[in-house]
Design a protein around this nucleic acid. Structure first.
Lengths: 224, 224
DNA sequence: AGAAAAGTTGACCATTTTTTGATTTTTTAT
DNA sequence: ATAAAAAATCAAAAAATGGTCAACTTTTCT
């Protein structure tokens, strides 16, 4: 499931450049060319924010300070000023890292990846889900039925994870496709159908049960 | 118990300045005005080392390189030269961070605190790990199977150590690459594949066993 | 400087996963 | 009962992944 990155910078050239690169790296991006716009995009719950310090009206530091209490995700500052003061300010205001212009795109994406990964670990979301005798370990990405392990491929597991963490909710194929492949992915949501079939097959073969229900004309749901 | 910080710099002015400030911050400090002195102070097991690169006789990089295998604590380089090359060298030689003169005392102590915090988590790892009849000595960096020593190169050992200390967890090649080479390293994670192959080869030849398991599409894990 | 060891790279192949498209089955509405 | 829409099935193509090898570069040691 692709991570969402919010890029905030008043220069469109810059946001476009970063957005393109990060999308190439497999992330979903949200772009805001002003702090105001950024605030409204926060509702989409980005997983990481790249924040330019120099902006008109509300600058990056102000923005960071005001959202830090509500938003827990990593924030990386981008700045042209290289004074020490900036670094400290950034970190005091609740930033997690800073990077000074000019920087290489690769360095940026390396840091993005590192922060996302670190964040992943510290998020103390439950890492084991259960359903009947099924034990789904999200960190090992394994599924056990009693002693028996049921092997699932990456995409299959992604879908299981998504449906299970949102158990009892119905999602149509489009929605599932978007959740797993990212909403800029170009492709047919027909793949979902096939993956669901594979998942059902494996689960049913071992457990004799059906966990995923089809709601006709609506989508699929994981029955808890 | 206050953390001990070893400050290494040939200029007494500097060591005194840093020492005073860090003591104000509540740390214990050890001061060395030469690399030789530093080496003997290592016996007191500092929790972090601040190391000037420019020093007569043995310079900071040399010192770092020669102690890195025995000392696990974070090392922060201090340098007046601000070339990129220095940064890279510092990190390659086993440093954890660098800071360029002039810097503010606040920034230094902020970084010190950050590194100590990070290190806290990873601490208290044992010096010797075992798996079946395999004995892996982290301080000597040797691997024995019974009486027989299995020779591993540095990178190979690094990978074994990483996987073993996180046994049963799955890491994809990217993660392993990042863990060993550092996240700012530019390079292909395909090297990991090759190292894993070498490690497996050596281990299997001697022990007849497979310790590293491949989880398809997921990565590798050391089976405990 | 030269040899040996370590580290890295890119290509190739086998295997597995993922995707696609055609076809069949099921469900719903008329 | 029948047609239309939605979902399931199946097989085969396409893409991604992992293992292996040989060549190449860098580092280390003598």
């Amino acid at each position: 499931m692709a991570n969402k990155i919010l890029i905030v910078d008043d220069e469109e050239m810059m946001t476009e450049l970063l957005s393109d690169h990060l999308r190439d790296c497999g992330y979903d991006t949200l772009v805001a060319n002003s702090s105001r716009r950024a605030i409204s995009l926060l509702q989409l719950q980005p997983d990481l924010i790249i924040l330019d310090i120099n902006m008109p009206e509300i600058d990056g530091l102000e923005l960071c300070k005001s959202i830090r209490n509500h938003i827990a995700c990593p924030i990386i500052f981008v700045t042209a000023r290289i004074t020490e003061q900036d670094k400290i300010n950034g970190l005091q205001y609740g930033g997690d890292d800073y990077i000074t212009k000019p920087f290489s795109l690769n360095e940026l994406s390396a840091r993005v990846a590192a922060h996302l990964r670190r964040d992943e670990r510290s998020k103390c979301k439950p890492y084991v889900l259960t359903a009947n005798n099924l034990i789904v370990n999200l960190s090992e990405r394994t599924v056990y039925y009693g002693d028996m392990q049921i092997p699932f491929s990456k995409k299959e597991f992604d879908i299981i994870e998504f449906l299970m963490t949102n158990a009892n909710q119905v999602f149509d194929r489009e929605r599932i496709y978007e959740a797993i492949w990212g909403y800029d992915a170009t492709g047919d949501s027909g793949v979902v159908k096939e993956h669901i079939r594979k998942i059902r097959g494996k689960l049913h073969e071992i457990t004799g049960q059906d966990y995923i229900e089809t709601i006709w004309g609506m989508g699929y749901k994981w029955n808890r």
